[in-house]
Simulated assay, not measured.
Amino acid sequence: MALLVVENLTKRFGGLLAVNSVSFGVETAEILSVIGPNGAGKTTLFNMLTGIYAPTTGSASLAGRPLVGAKPHQIVAAGLARTFQNIRLFGSMSALENVMVGRHSRTKGGFWTALLPGKAGVAEEKQIAQRASEELDFVGLGHCAAQTASCLCYGDQRRLEVARALATDPQLVLLDEPAAGMNPQETRSLIALIRRIQKRGITVVLIEHDMNLVMNLSDRVVVMNFGQKIADGAPAQVRSDPQVIAAYLGSGAA
């Protein structure tokens, strides 16, 4: 059984059908790209998988655990983490502190532990800081641990978001346009990072407009247009699909 199973997921906003009965599966440690023109419903799909939007109909599960109806923090606890199209860091906090926020989703201590930390609470906080430091090293930002997040360059902020997601111990991570705004060197670094994530046994699903990245990195590609899935297959297969060509280049291109 696939790690992530999406079945007939649909989202309506009034009279607008943003996502229309989309189904697909993702295997463990697979890299799947979700592509399509602007407005195709890709981010809405991610928002349904992470509990930000409730689907109108349909279902989704991670390792057999239902995602629909769960709250965002419950979905993170189930092993699904994400980054966002628009960077959402705590700008006044350090890079290390931002990643520690992600790691706190796996802590045992609650409100009173944070308010009145005893010996166990202090020890746990040290463990959190250590794990956050390891994730910063993993994404190549170990030297930036003490820097304020808002002072990091754009590409480093993107990688910091990935580190924060990894600190939650995900089985699967959703990356929403991770290469947006990156220069070619930053994009090459991102591709290498995603491959290292895959080698850790973590499944990656990404939304991306950089077709060179998508075709060189993905094991599989799902294509959406006007809220519907129009193709699903290997990159070479999808690239030559007449419906995909028409969606990107106009009906005359097919």
Score class of each variant (00 low, 15 high):
Ile202Met: 02
Leu115Thr: 14
Met211Arg: 05
Val214Asn: 04
Ala254Trp: 09
Thr148Asp: 11
Arg88Met: 09
Glu134Trp: 01
Thr28Ser: 15
Gly64Asn: 02
Ser23Val: 12
Met1Leu: 12
Asn86Gly: 09
Ser251Trp: 13
Gly110Asn: 13
Val76Arg: 00
Glu30Ala: 02
Leu45Lys: 00
Pro117Val: 07
Ala70Lys: 14
Val34Arg: 02
Ala60Arg: 01
Ile191Glu: 11
Thr43Arg: 03
Phe111Gly: 03
Leu16Tyr: 07
Leu17Asn: 11
Ile197Thr: 01
Leu206Val: 04
Gly181Val: 09
Lys42Asn: 03
Val26Thr: 08
Gln157Leu: 10
Ile52Ala: 08
Ala77Arg: 13
Pro66Gly: 10
Ala95Trp: 01
Ala123Gln: 15
Glu7Val: 07
Asp219His: 15
Ala123Val: 14
Gly15Phe: 10
Arg164Trp: 03
Ala77Gly: 14
Leu190Cys: 02
Gly39Asn: 08
Gly250Leu: 05
Glu30Asn: 08
Pro242Leu: 12
Pro178Tyr: 02
Val173Tyr: 02
Gly121Asn: 13
Thr44Leu: 05
Asp176Ile: 10
Gln237Trp: 07
Asn98Leu: 08
Ile87His: 09
Ser21Gln: 14
Pro184Gly: 11
Ala129Asn: 04
Gly102Gln: 03
Ser92Thr: 14
Leu136Asn: 04
Arg200Phe: 08
Ser189Asn: 15
Leu96Gln: 11
Glu134His: 02
Thr28Tyr: 08
Val244Gln: 01
Val5Leu: 12
Val205Lys: 00
Met215Ala: 10
Gly140Phe: 05
Ala29Asn: 07
Val19Met: 06
Glu7Ile: 05
Gly201Met: 03
Ala2Met: 12
Ile31Arg: 01
Ala95Asp: 03
Val19Tyr: 05
Leu141Pro: 01
Thr187Glu: 01
Ser189Tyr: 09
Val173Lys: 02
Ala120Asn: 12
Gln237Lys: 12
Gly25Ser: 14
Gly91Ile: 10
Leu96Trp: 09
Gly227Met: 13
Lys71Gln: 09
Phe84Val: 01
Ala132Leu: 01
Gly15Cys: 05
Glu177Thr: 10
Ala236Gln: 15
Leu174Ile: 07
Pro170Met: 05
Ser251Leu: 14
Ser94Val: 06
Ser150Cys: 15
Ala231Tyr: 07
Val34Gly: 02
Asp156Leu: 10
Ala29Arg: 10
Ala81Gly: 09
Ile230Leu: 13
Glu97Asn: 04
Ala192Glu: 15
Pro184Glu: 11
Glu27Ile: 08
